[in-house]
């Protein structure tokens, strides 16, 4: 009867040995390859540092002007442009300019990385059912596994700093672009595709001239989601050495500075709203004429 009252447990020492084994082999792996992997991310690091410097050291009126212009290009809405400018002025006025620029820099770079990596993966998934079946669970895992868990190996491998932070943000923010690229391409009308094939398009031509353009609005929804998720990771990323609005929030938590925490938190919210509205409006705009009839 004992069997039913107590769940079978692995032998204590064996379990400890198992964990130890995994840890030490990963440590060995990181000792052997850590530098190499770090080197691999070097260009990305330089780009991130360069962008951050550019944003911080350029005269603030120019930076705000550029943001306003980008908002205009994206949304064609004067209200949004004014909103954007006011938000950044307020953020600056309350002394959060530097941190805010650092956050904008890391969000931009990680979004870029997610697009460059995510869209090809999404395309691959849309082309092969088998790829879709293998990649989907990985995406599920990336989205649900607590971020602290994958922070451990990243820190073991790369230490503390900007690159591991960037990596952590990307892991969390990548899935939406991949998912929605896959979905968008799979949703393209079958007869439209047949038409392209019937006139002798190669698979690459079909992708470039029909599938990608027609799924662009959906892909864009994915990019929007990715930006939002990257922003959500700002605080966690600052735990492992990424500068930005997350740093004062961490300080505020440990020292119980209510006002500091609120202000920086609201700055993140403001950024999120600006990014979201601008990209959404842009997504809707590219949908207008090209929109598929359902």
């Amino acid at each position: 009867m004992d069997f039913f009252n107590k769940i079978p447990v692995m032998d204590r020492t064996a379990l400890r040995e198992l964990k130890k084994g995994i840890d030490s082999s990963f440590k060995e792996f990181s000792r052997a390859y850590g530098d190499g992997i770090e080197g691999f991310f070097d260009p990305l690091l330089h780009f991130l540092i360069w962008l951050e410097k550019l944003l911080v050291s350029s005269p603030w009126p120019i930076v705000i002007g550029v943001f306003g212009l980008l908002a205009w290009i994206g949304s064609r809405s004067i209200k949004l442009v004014i909103g954007t400018i006011v938000c950044f002025l307020v953020i600056g006025y309350f002394g959060m300019w530097k941190n805010c620029m650092a956050t904008v820099a890391i969000i931009s770079v990680s979004t870029l990385v997610c697009i460059v990596v995510g869209i090809p993966i999404g395309v691959l998934m849309s082309k092969s059912d088998r790829a879709e079946k293998t990649i989907l669970p990985v995406l599920d895992m990336m989205q649900t596994i607590p971020s602290f868990v994958y922070l451990i190996p990243i820190i073991m491998l790369l230490g503390i700093g900007k690159v591991p932070g960037l990596l952590a943000v990307c892991i969390y923010a990548l899935p939406p672009v991949v998912r929605l690229t896959n979905l968008g391409i799979r949703e393209v009308d079958k007869e439209t595709l047949e038409a392209s094939e019937a006139f002798g398009a190669t698979p690459m031509q079909k992708l470039k001239s029909v599938q990608i353009p027609l799924s662009l609005p959906t892909i864009f929804a994915g990019v929007n989601q990715t930006i939002m998720m990257a922003l959500a990771m700002v605080v966690i990323a600052s735990m492992i050495g990424v500068k930005g609005l997350g740093v004062p929030i961490l300080q505020a938590i440990s020292n119980q500075y209510l006002a500091l925490g609120m202000m920086n938190g609201l700055a993140i919210v403001a950024l999120a709203i600006i990014f979201d509205r601008v990209t959404q409006q842009y997504g809707q705009r590219i949908q207008k004429h090209r929109g598929q009839k359902k």
């Binding site: 006139f199 002798g200 027609l214």
Partner: peptide, 21 residues
């Protein structure tokens, strides 16, 4: 096959199959 489709045949589709973009 691609060459053949380009130069030998063209097709009109029942539901048009136009490129909306």
């Amino acid at each position: 096959l691609i060459d053949f489709r380009r130069h030998k045949m063209s097709m009109v589709f029942q539901r048009f199959g136009l490129f909306p973009h």
